[in-house]
Design a protein around this nucleic acid. Structure first.
Lengths: 342, 342
DNA sequence: GGGAGAAATGATATCGTTGTCATTCTCAGT
DNA sequence: ACTGAGAATGACAACGATATCATTTCTCCC
């Protein structure tokens, strides 16, 4: 029978203070608010920290100060590649400010979302960053009451819980529809993941396109294999298919592969577009036309907004539309009508 | 001048106890140790929780109980795709046990590693999971003293800090060398990321191969573009190049693309292998020969070991070699000698 | 030299929970 | 009815830091 793991007794601020010959509270100030202690005291405390190997207990500090210096980051799944640059820049920006990221995955499941959010809130994060919007109405209510600074990202909303940094998915769909309208291609299909934002882009596309189009919906998160299958489905729906609009670059990649397997040339026989501007898209053969969104900036801004708010900076405009850019590349380059036609 | 954000006064256990008409400590037990309170009391407390909207403060609980119910997860960067399945299964397994993941990125930088680990330790995690081994000697010392359950993963080690779950990178390199030796190909090159484990695989390859090979080292994390460039470098070093061994599937993918750009057929003119068995590898044209490692299992085992240790289960064998599998696919399929030759 | 004001330090209470020990209550067994 | 074991509950202190208010020490200027 072994005793459960218990941390070996670590030195506390009390030990540091004793070693430095000052009171505990002075030691606390020397570390947390160095400006208000004398130079000699500060030096003595700093030396004592080194001697004792003291590492502050942020749980204890956070309990009293109500600043946990943690931020919750919630996303559907790490496998959703489009969010990774955002999460990466978020952690980096937070780390710089002394904050850490608490990670939660919802798997596009409202119930999981509620559980994850409750688990997060109980850890008293100083802020919450959500990839996408908070779906569950119950979760929305609880978050409103919790009053924790919150940033919803990768979307915009009429009814934000707090702050929103993103762009309009219907507009993306609409822009893609306009782009393909200019190509003059008639037989356009859609391959889309089943997540809410991808479906919004599809709806935006269809609305602007003006008529129904063959569609293959694959479960999110999408991948290359699903892209290959999707092309089969779309060709079954319309053997004269000329173009496929995809909800992710990996899906578009799958279309590319399957097209080659079937002897279809891209873009001559089939035009393909993606979404997200993945790091591989510019370097494929053919390179993939896609929609670029500044993911790292989203993460960086979210981190900044939350840290600002904790420092007492008044809230800025709460809905920030970062927009998007359609990047035309080889996978749709055989367009008969030039892009800049008015 | 706005006041800094402060959480609105949330109901505490005290409020729940008052609402339920019991003492605070009984309320605590009703929630944390339901077996030892009477059925009626438990029901009253649970109702009070709902009425008040109580969410426990795990910071406070953790301070006293010395159980933060958080686990630190440290990886070089989220952009290193091979770790994602591990992190994903880790968060999932931890969430199931009521634990949350604190994320830290080191960017292959020992100093960052130290900073990140200090930041983590100060949040009193119940365990730490590191992708790879802890590099910095100073960090290793501090972690030894901290006495926190720790799992190093994706590698094995003679001198583990605590627990290790992974496999031998030199052995991977060696297995690849043996495989390519059976093919009879003479002109083999290596395209590798600059991270320590990729370099170990390279060294293992070279040791078994028996002589120096053309090598292109690209900065980690690797991507498709770097793979394309690497093929150029390797062809410059050896115009008769017949095969490229890559340190990641994305790098191999880049080789594939660049080969096509140069009119080289894979595998007839150039054999290519990767590492990691990315989700796209099996579905490419040609599919990519690669080395498979059970990433999700690593995450799941790491979570289990740490949670077990917190529950008092005695430490198991501290070094666990999960091995790896070489998966032969089309990108090396034109081998003249059958794979199973003794 | 005296006193005002700032700088530096300290004492005490507190954050919200759980561990420990003490107390009350219930009920079977004699 | 009495004892004692066990169940159920409670009182109190403590976790390790910071907020608040109080006190001491120093500096500077008239």
């Amino acid at each position: 029978m072994t005793a459960p793991f218990t941390p070996t007794k670590a030195p506390t601020l009390q030990d540091v203070a004793r070693a430095a010959g000052v009171s505990q509270i002075t030691a606390s100030r020397a570390l947390g608010n160095p400006g208000i202690v004398s130079d000699t005291t500060r030096a003595r405390v700093q030396q004592a920290v080194i001697d004792t190997g003291y590492i502050p207990n942020l749980l204890a500090g956070g309990l009293k100060s109500k600043r946990s210096r943690m931020v919750a980051g919630i996303l559907p799944a790490l496998a959703v590649a489009q969010f990774l640059p955002t999460v990466q820049s978020l952690t980096a920006a937070l780390a710089q400010g002394g904050y850490q990221l608490l990670l939660g995955e919802t798997f596009y499941d409202p119930q999981r979302e509620e559980e994850v959010l409750t688990a997060m809130v109980s850890r008293q994060p100083d802020g919450i960053v959500v990839m996408g919007l908070v779906e569950s109405e119950q979760a929305r209510n609880r978050l409103r009451k919790a009053g924790i600074p919150l940033v919803e990202t990768w979307d915009i909303s009429d009814d934000p819980l707090d702050m929103v940094i993103g762009f309009s998915h219907p507009q993306v769909g609409s822009a893609l529809a306009e782009y393909f309208q200019r190509t003059g291609l008639q037989h356009v299909g859609i391959a889309t993941g089943s997540d809410p934002r991808a479906l919004q882009r599809r709806d935006g596309f269809v609305a602007t396109w003006g008529r129904a189009v063959p569609t293959a919906v694959v479960p999110a998160p999408s991948n290359l294999e699903l892209g290959r299958k999707a092309l089969g489905e779309l060709l079954a729906q319309d053997p004269q298919l000329q173009a496929v609009v995809c909800s992710s670059d990996m899906l578009a990649h799958g279309i590319l592969v399957e097209a080659r397997a079937r002897g279809l040339r891209v873009p001559q026989d089939l035009a393909v577009s993606g979404f997200g501007n993945a790091d591989f898209s510019a370097h494929m053969l053919p390179s993939i036309t896609t929609v670029h969104v500044d993911g790292p900036r989203i993460g960086q801004l979210a981190a900044q907004r939350i840290m600002d708010r904790c420092r007492g900076v008044p809230p800025q405009k709460s809905v920030l539309d970062l927009g998007f850019t359609l990047i035309e590349r080889e996978s749709t380059a055989a367009v008969p009508v030039p892009l800049n036609t008015p």
